[in-house]
Computed example of a mutant assay.
Amino acid sequence: MRIPTDGKTLLRGSLIVLSALFATTALTLPARPAFALSELKKEEVEVPQKPAEGEKAAPVEEEQENAAPVELPQPDPLIRKRDSVTEPADEPAVTDDKPAEEEPQAPVEVLYDIEKAPEPVRRMRQLIVEAAASGDIERLRPLLGKGVTETQVSMVESKEGPVETLKGQSGDSDGIEVLAILLDVLATGYVHVGQGTPDEMYVWPYFTAKPLAGLTPPEKVELLRIVTAGDFADMQEFGSYNFYRVGIAPDGQWKFFVTGD
């Protein structure tokens, strides 16, 4: 018998053969149970379980526990400020003690009576006055001493003798101006300072030991017989008397005749 070979017949036969093959394969594969959507999610995601007590922790956790704590660097000293909220400033302790008051200065005793000074002091003063009044500065030379007993006539060291130094300080070449100042200074009141010490001295004028702010009008007149009003203003700004002054020790030694601070 002749088998038809048209295209439709061949296509129909191929489909029959393929259907038979799929059916045979489905019968031979093992059956797999169907899962719900929620069960599929549980199967895909695995949740780590907490280790039971007594079990050794993971090495990573041990390293984290044994790691040294991280320390932050301290701020720069320029920006370290006290936090007024978290760290209030220490309050001063409250005490009943009153601040110590400054002791008032004892009043300066101004002396005018030369008889209250020791005899050696009175004698040296008289010799100085007579020499200065003569107008001859050379008459001061034997009174000015020599070596360790030489009278200080300058605030700075000089290789010149005391008479030559005084001439250099005078407004004239003969030293007359300095002699006049010396007389004016010794004509004022004086003070006795350093009692009982190696620096005990009788000093003219008394302005050297008295605050200028406390001078009375008559005392200001006395001061202006020695200095000018401009000098007085400069002294007030400086804070003390800084013109010529004379010092004689209790034993009669002429210690100094200097000007300046």
Rank of each mutant, 00 (worst) to 15 (best):
P4T: 10
S14Y: 10
L15V: 15
V17H: 07
A20L: 09
F22V: 15
T24I: 12
L29P: 04
A31F: 02
R32L: 12
K41Q: 08
V47L: 12
G54E: 00
A57H: 13
A58Q: 10
A58D: 13
P59K: 06
P59L: 02
E63L: 15
Q64K: 11
A67V: 09
A68N: 05
A68E: 02
E71V: 15
D76L: 14
D76Y: 08
L78E: 14
I79F: 02
R82A: 00
D90G: 10
E91M: 14
T95L: 08
D96F: 09
D97I: 14
E102N: 08
E103F: 07
E103P: 13
E103T: 11
Q105K: 05
Q105D: 10
E109F: 03
E119M: 14
E119R: 10
E119S: 14
E119L: 10
I128S: 03
G135R: 08
R141E: 05
L143N: 03
L144E: 01
G145A: 01
G147F: 10
G147H: 10
S154H: 03
K159L: 09
L166D: 01
G168Y: 00
S170C: 06
I176K: 09
V178H: 05
D184I: 11
D184A: 13
V185F: 00
V191F: 04
G194P: 06
G194N: 04
T197D: 01
D199E: 11
P205H: 01
P205D: 03
Y206N: 04
T208Q: 01
K210Q: 12
L212F: 01
L215Y: 14
P218I: 06
E219N: 09
L223I: 05
G230E: 12
D231T: 06
F232E: 14
F232V: 13
Q236S: 13
Q236D: 07
Q236C: 09
Q236F: 03
F238R: 11
G239H: 11
G239D: 03
S240H: 15
A249M: 04
P250F: 02
G252K: 05
V258Y: 06
